[in-house]
Simulated assay, not measured.
Amino acid sequence: MPELDMLQEFLDGGQVDPAVFALRPDYRALLLAVDGLVPGPSDHASEEMLQAAESAARELLTDGPAEQVPHVAAWREAYQGFGAKPSRTRNSLEALLRRAVSGLPRVNRLTDLYNAVSVLHQIPLGGEDLNRYSGAPRLVRATGTEPFDTSADGAAVIEHPEPGEVVWCDDAGVTCRRWNWRQARRTQLGEDTTAALFILDALEPIADEALHAAAEDLAARLTLLGPDVRVARRLIAAGSPANERD
């Protein structure tokens, strides 16, 4: 099991390319590297969290459709900034809010947990299997040649992002397309995941305090998933020191 300083070292290698900050200077990424998780299928605790998130989403959407939620609207604008059509490829927060009306997916305890936290705090949030990473996470504007491991009609396929698209990647290829739209199959969380990377994405009007509150909520819930859970974190923002740790 990696020591805490090894988790922090992994996060220290993470980067957001200046071209991404040029597109959205208000962007912030809060990364959590977690080890010591006890994996498993959806359970009673994750079911309760999802039900709470569904109720919160339904109440939120009584005031208007998902695209009018301020943070969703900000992400729609960001998607347009690199040429994506937000009505066709929705950011992960909008997609979850829309699904919450009829019911959020039940996947596994880790995925259920971070989906619920995403909805409850209205922040896009992704989870990746840390043991399947090759190198550190990087957020870049794609060249269009990077491989993206996904599926189509039930079959595994390799696709490529559009040139200029904002993507998370590692040394082996794209791990998430269009900032926070679709994750690669290679690094998906599963019922055997014991170490994970979580990425919380924020744009204005989300304040740093709200971003950190979401991360604290996520970390607190993750520590309940095993007696030896370790959590390291790092905030990456434009114009800030190269590394900020809690």
Rank of each mutant, 00 (worst) to 15 (best):
G13D: 06
R28I: 06
E209D: 13
E204F: 05
G127T: 03
H212I: 12
R234Q: 08
R90I: 01
I123V: 14
V20F: 00
R230V: 06
L211V: 07
A220K: 05
L50I: 04
T111D: 10
D26W: 06
P41C: 09
Q122L: 15
V166A: 12
Q51E: 14
A66Y: 00
Y114I: 07
E48M: 11
P241C: 10
R109C: 09
W75Y: 12
E165D: 14
A152Y: 13
A238Y: 00
L61P: 05
L61E: 03
G190D: 14
D170R: 02
G226E: 04
A237R: 03
R90L: 06
A215M: 12
F82Q: 02
Q8T: 14
R90A: 01
G154P: 05
I158A: 12
L125A: 01
A116R: 01
T187K: 02
G173E: 09
A214R: 00
A196S: 10
G190P: 06
M6D: 15
A238Q: 06
G144D: 13
D208A: 11
D149V: 09
G13W: 04
S134I: 11
H71S: 13
M6C: 15
R221D: 04
G164Q: 09
L197A: 04
V101Y: 10
R234K: 07
G126N: 11
H212A: 10
D35Y: 04
E47V: 08
D217N: 13
W181H: 08
D149A: 15
A207S: 07
D217W: 03
E3H: 13
P124S: 13
F82W: 15
V140M: 04
L60H: 02
H44S: 14
V174M: 07
A196R: 00
D63N: 13
T150H: 09
N131P: 00
P2H: 14
A237G: 01
Q188A: 11
V107C: 07
Q51I: 03
R109T: 11
G144L: 14
A100L: 10
R106Q: 09
Q80I: 12
I158N: 06
R178P: 08
L37S: 04
L139W: 03
L30D: 01
R99V: 03
R88K: 09
S46F: 02
I206E: 02
E146T: 10
L130G: 01
A214Q: 01
W181G: 02
G103H: 05
T175Q: 10
E191P: 11
Q188F: 10
V119Q: 08
C176F: 05
P147S: 14
P18K: 08
A232C: 06
S118N: 04
Q122Y: 10
G126L: 13
R230W: 00
P163C: 13
R234F: 04
W168D: 07
F82H: 08
P227D: 04
G36Y: 03
G81C: 10
R245H: 08
D26N: 07
T223R: 12
L7S: 04
V16T: 09
T193Y: 02
T143Q: 15
S240R: 08
E94H: 06
A45H: 07
L110I: 02
V231G: 05
N131S: 11
L7G: 03
G226S: 05
A95M: 05
